[in-house]
Design a protein around this nucleic acid. Structure first.
Length: 399
RNA sequence: CGGGGCGUAGCGCAGUCUGGCAGCGCAUCUGCUUUGGGAGCAGGGGGUCAGAGGUUCAAAUCCUCUCGCCCCGACCA
């Protein structure tokens, strides 16, 4: 929708389509919460049904960036990335007794043979099935994780992707010989979680929690203060609303025992493995980030999360010099530059750029162009006027 | 799952009470004007009135059923 639509394009037509990126912004949205409203207005997500959202290119870009930050951290502490299916045979859930216990949030499906399937609301059973009969003593500890869509048939979805039915979750699973090994690694993961949230600029607290339906002996949840939080915690004597972003559990033998995940140890005894699981709501995390970085008319993304680090506002209608300057910058920073141009009004261009929220905004207007300059606004810095000849060097420094 | 509300053009809505040509704003397309904070004028296109059944000469409108969505509450990752 926003693209280079200059008619005077005989010098740039070959490249024009390269800069296109589909961002259908909206003037307004009737979403209830500010976070969901902003995500709809900026063209990040589209609702298909109650609690079921499509991720448009802009939203998916942010989701992917967050996913990468989490994934890198998990690999840093020794997890191997893998991928479990979204659909699990009901038989696995019957083995642990959760098929009946989990409740109406679990989506049960039948395939063409009338076999019962489950769209996984979580994946402990699937993961155990993947590793059982394969792990030998010398393999331990085994640490795997995946980032996969989950479905929980919420009674009442709300706040856009913050509490939806289909959501992206990073779920890690570790298997240990002893409870002590499991506990040590549990602390490593807890530390890694804090580093991830720090990297994203989120003030997250961890707090001991109930293990609930999932079972196990120890758990911590990771919470962020939020207007639309649905958990409460007491901080400094004041009860506040929090949104849960992650939860880790020391599961013990809750799954390994009934599913017969065992190894024979050095004393020739066969014991059930000690299992832990670690979850982060990746798609919900994007909601928390939008809430955190939202400003008056849009968003101010920090550089390490921004879907586009640079937004160029081409205010000129038929200026070859302006178009060529856009193209010069886009070629150098092609994956992270978004150009707002065409015959839209200046107001609309600024409004769209506010919604995209790049930390660096370059404004190409007739006034500065007369002196071969452009205006560059850098978040948390002043406005610079830079000569076109020096723009690439300047951007290299601030990006 | 209980209570309430809504469903009419892509989006937001009026029309429903009192049956009688399918409307308005925004968006979109065309042309001209405008170009530093979501522009102006003119013209055009776009409809399974949520769905099914019923009443009637005639149904968006009345009746019955079904579905979907939203808000509150309860429940819960």
């Amino acid at each position: 929708m926003i693209m280079n639509t200059s008619k005077n394009d005989n010098y740039s037509s070959n490249c024009e389509s390269l800069g296109k990126f589909f961002i259908p912004t909206k003037k307004d949205s009737d979403e209830f919460s500010e976070t969901a409203k902003l995500m709809m207005k900026s063209g990040m997500i589209h609702k298909l049904s109650s609690g079921i959202y499509a991720w448009l290119p802009l939203g998916y870009k942010i989701l992917s960036i967050v996913e990468k930050i989490i994934s890198d951290k998990f690999e840093d502490i020794g997890f191997n990335r893998m991928c479990l299916p979204t659909l699990h045979p009901a038989s696995l859930w019957i083995e642990t007794g959760r098929y009946e216990v989990y409740g109406k949030e679990m989506l049960k499906i039948k395939d063409r043979n009338e076999s019962d399937l489950v769209f996984g609301p979580t994946a402990e059973e699937a993961c155990v099935d993947m590793v059982r009969n394969k792990i030998k003593l010398h393999d331990l500890p085994v640490k795997v994780f995946n980032i996969q869509w989950k479905f929980r048939d919420e009674l009442r979805p709300r706040y856009g992707i913050v509490r939806c039915r289909e959501f992206l979750m990073c779920d890690g699973y570790s298997f240990h010989e002893t409870e002590k090994d499991a506990l040590d690694f549990y602390d490593n993961v807890s530390e890694a979680y804090k580093e991830v949230f720090d990297e994203l600029g989120l003030d997250v607290i961890s707090k001991p929690a109930e293990t609930g339906e999932i079972g196990g002996s120890k758990s911590h949840e990771f919470l962020i203060e939020s207007e639309i939080g649905e958990d409460t915690a007491v901080v400094d004597g004041v009860e506040k609303s929090f949104m849960e972003l992650g939860h880790i559990f020391l599961l013990g033998t809750r799954y390994s025992e009934p599913m017969n995940l065992k190894v024979t140890n050095s004393e020739n005894k066969t014991n059930a493995l000690v299992m832990s699981c670690y979850g982060i709501g990746v798609s919900r995390l994007v909601g928390a980030l939008v809430e955190k970085y939202s400003v008056e008319n849009g968003i101010n993304w920090p550089k390490n999360i921004a879907p586009f680090k640079i937004t160029i506002l081409n205010m000129c209608k038929d200026s070859e010099k302006a178009d060529k300057t856009c193209e010069k910058i886009r070629r150098k920073f092609s994956k992270t530059t978004y150009i707002v141009s065409g015959k839209k009004s200046p107001g609309e261009k600024f409004a769209v750029s506010d919604l995209i929220g790049s930390p660096i905004k370059i404004i190409i207007g007739n006034k500065q162009l007369e002196s071969d300059s452009v205006e560059v606004r850098v978040i948390s810095d002043k406005t610079h006027y830079i000569k076109i000849d020096e723009i690439i060097d300047f951007l290299d420094k601030v990006i």
